[in-house]
């Protein structure tokens, strides 16, 4: 464990807590893409298949349970909570995410570390996570101005993967046998997808204006 990875995990945890806070406190999920939340639930379930077979550390196990639990709770809330579900922007959240699922799965069948069920699903979850934010970014662009908690959620989510890139550089430099190309390349793509959002987020923060994404 290094400081970059810990910072990344904490930032990731904050992004999830910000989202849960927004939904719980305001009893509203306006501006939040259910499709992105469902993709993230799939990412965590398919990535942590080794939850009960490989014990890495208490921290690792607890964080896996938190991520799986919170992502499923958010999806449940947005789908079935009688108050929250009314504020879901169903007509704006129309990203055809089956494409993302299909492409990620085919890519995982081709590119993986070992051809085992667990490794193929792990690679699938890495590829899927890189593109899971797309429905959310599209929804933010369609709904124009971003209410600040939704914007903060995307900001922290993007920042966590940026910290992980620093973690991979650090591990590459310190551990002679560290070769996680699948994670590294996919993480770079993922962070690049956030780049334009970060730009507009920074501009709005600098001008202390509401975040306006170009339609």
């Amino acid at each position: 464990m290094n400081i970059f990875r810990l910072a990344g995990d904490m930032t990731h945890l904050i992004s999830v807590l910000v989202l849960l806070l927004k939904i719980y406190a305001t009893k509203s999920c306006s501006g939040i893409s259910l499709k992105t939340q469902e993709l993230y639930a799939i990412v965590f379930v398919t990535r942590y298949l080794d939850l009960f077979t490989d014990f890495i550390s208490l921290y690792n196990t607890v964080m896996k349970l938190v991520f799986i639990g919170s992502s499923l709770a958010i999806v449940w809330c947005m789908r079935y909570h009688r108050v929250v579900r009314r504020s879901y922007d169903r007509e704006l959240d129309t990203f055809r995410y089956w494409i993302l699922l299909g492409v990620s799965f085919i890519l995982a069948l081709v590119l993986h570390e070992k051809f085992t069920l667990q490794e193929v699903f792990w690679a699938f979850s890495i590829y899927l996570e890189a593109v899971a934010i797309l429905p959310q970014l599209v929804l933010l662009q369609r709904s124009g101005n971003v209410d600040n908690l939704a914007g903060q959620y995307v900001f922290f989510l993007g920042a966590y993967r940026a910290f992980y890139i620093l973690n991979w550089i650090y591990r590459y430099l310190t551990e002679q046998r560290f070769t996680r190309w699948i994670s590294c390349v996919s993480g770079l793509v993922q962070t690049a997808l956030y780049a334009d959002f970060f730009y507009y987020y920074f501009i709005s923060w600098k001008n202390n204006a509401k975040l306006q994404l170009p339609a």
Binding site: D9, R47, N60, M63, K114
Partner: peptide
Amino acid sequence: TRDQNVHDEL
């Protein structure tokens, strides 16, 4: 050492 292919990152 733990065999490398165990994914120790979240």
